[in-house]
Structure formats: structure tokens, C-alpha cells
């Protein structure tokens, strides 16, 4: 049986997805990217092959995406994560018209059309504000685990406003708030609000159309998702592992290419 793989080499994590010949997800894996994108891609692929209990020769086609896509020597094709997130989200949630992808080093808002085609997009690619890196820096400063931030913020009775958008200045602001004994939960909620406000400007630029899917690692943070839903006035589509949506889109492109090649 033939399989198809997508590998998304992101700033923080490298994700791999394997699809069956019927475009069903057979397995996925997530590893840390670390210092070497090629090694991370190899590791993610090895992991997903083990998970799917297949061998590499059974993979008919591989599409790489993410910032490290150029460092995946065994990929048959390289496609940007913008196209892949759009397709992946559309495949999972066919009413998706807008994708909000908040990744480790950038965030994107993508307008999606029929068949998962990108109609428009915008990216925050000039600084760490509104990205996973922003949260990582703040988690470190507040001495909480990154994956605990969501739950902590949901417990906050109120939020402390964070006025700085810049990661460096926000970090200083957090230091001051800690010194003033503000509860950690309230500071975190304020930080989440800051991210959402930042991304919201991009959402407004692209426009909300139909269902909204959130992808990327930050979509695992329930606190950010809740604030985004509040802002949108509607619930968002979430995959159980939102950072694999890009790899899924890449795998779908691999599958589609083989379909069109006959």
C-alpha cells in the first residue's frame, strides 16, 4: 500500500503526518526542531513511520513545508506553510474560511477558498510580538511551564493589562508587575490578551469569512483560544494537535500530486 508524507519544519517543532492512499491520517509525530532542521525532519519522519508501522519505501511522495522546508533533502516538493495550513484546516473542517496560525516565530491569518485554496493572507514577520516566542519568553520570566499558561489564565478572576506589544518591553513590564505582587494568572491573561489583540489586527486586515480554524502551537493554549473566540464572537475549530495541521496540508499536497499524476 502507498502512503504520503508531509513534514513541517517549524521554528520550535517539526511535525510529520502520514496519509494512506485514501487520504486518511495514518499517523503523526511531533519532535523539537532544535539546532538542525535536517536532523529534526529525519527524526520526525522516523517517528511517524514507527507510529504508522510502515517502512520508508512505502512512502510514495513527501512534501516539506515550514521555514526549514529547504533543509529536507528527501522531500519531493517544498510548499510554504501558508498553503499547507490552509489546505490542512480545510480538510479537517470543510467550512473553514479563515485560518489563524500562531506559530513559534510568526503568526499568519489566511483567507481560505474552495478546495482549501489560499485567497489572501497576512503575516506578522517583523517581530516576536503575537507569536509563540512571545509566550515562551514570558513563561520563562514568570517561571511557569509553557503548556500550563492556558489553564492558569482561565483561572484568573481578572486580567492585568499589558501595554507593551514589543516582547522586550513586555518582559520588562512583566518584571514590574511581578514586583508589584500581581497574581501570575492575571498577568498571563493580560499577556494572552496582548497576543490576541496583535493577531486581531491581522484578522481584520484579511476579514473573517465562514468558520475559523486555529492552528499552530499557540492554539494549544486554551487561554489564548478563549480570548480569540470572545473577540470573534464565535467558536473556533481546533484539531487535537493544532501544530500538525501544516504537515497534514503538506501530506495532502503529496497525495493530490500523485492523484493528478495518475
Amino acid at each position: 500500500m502507498d502512503y504520503f508524507a508531509g513534514i513541517d519544519v517549524g521554528a520550535l517543532s517539526t511535525d510529520a503526518v502520514i496519509l494512506t492512499a485514501g487520504s486518511e491520517v495514518a499517523a503523526y509525530s511531533i519532535v523539537e526542531t532544535g539546532a538542525n532542521s535536517t536532523d529534526a525532519a529525519e527524526e520526525a519522519l522516523a517517528g511517524v513511520l514507527a507510529e504508522a508501522e510502515i517502512v520508508r519505501s512505502q512512502i510514495k511522495r513527501i512534501v516539506a513545508t515550514g521555514y526549514g522546508r529547504v533543509s529536507v533533502p528527501f522531500a519531493d516538493k517544498r510548499v510554504t506553510e501558508i498553503s499547507c495550513h490552509a489546505l490542512g484546516a480545510y480538510h479537517l473542517f470543510p467550512d473553514t474560511g479563515t485560518v489563524i496560525d500562531i506559530g513559534g516565530q510568526d503568526s499568519k491569518v489566511i483567507q481560505v477558498g474552495e478546495g482549501g485554496k489560499v485567497l489572501n493572507f497576512t503575516m506578522n514577520d517583523k517581530c516576536a510580538a503575537g507569536t509563540g516566542r512571545f509566550l515562551e519568553v514570558m513563561a520563562n520570566k514568570l517561571q511557569v511551564a509553557l503548556d500550563e499558561m492556558g489553564e492558569l489564565s482561565l483561572r484568573a478572576g481578572r486580567e492585568v493589562p499589558i501595554s507593551s506589544v514589543c516582547t522586550v518591553f513586555a518582559e520588562s513590564e512583566v518584571v514590574s508587575l511581578v514586583a508589584q505582587n500581581h497574581p501570575t494568572e492575571e498577568i498571563i491573561r493580560g499577556l494572552h490578551r496582548s497576543i490576541v489583540n496583535r493577531v486581531w489586527n491581522m484578522v481584520k486586515a484579511v476579514g473573517v469569512n465562514g468558520g475559523v480554524a486555529m492552528t499552530g502551537g499557540v492554539a494549544k493554549n486554551r487561554g489564548v483560544v478563549a480570548l480569540m473566540e470572545e473577540k470573534l464572537g464565535q467558536s473556533v475549530h481546533l484539531h487535537e494537535e493544532p501544530q500538525v495541521v501544516g504537515a497534514l496540508g503538506a501530506a495532502l499536497l503529496a497525495w493530490r500530486a500523485s492523484q493528478s499524476a495518475g
Binding site: 498553503s83 485567497l119 493572507f121 503575516m123 514577520d125
Partner: peptide, 15 residues
């Protein structure tokens, strides 16, 4: 041309 800028150009062409 940063990697991010290149990605934007590439995504635009894919679009």
C-alpha cells in the same frame, strides 16, 4: 531577503 520575506513571496506565487 529574510526567510520570512521569502516565504511571503513564495506563498503569494502559490496563491
Amino acid at each position: 531577503l529574510s526567510g520570512q520575506l521569502a516565504t511571503r513571496v513564495e506563498a503569494f506565487l502559490e496563491m
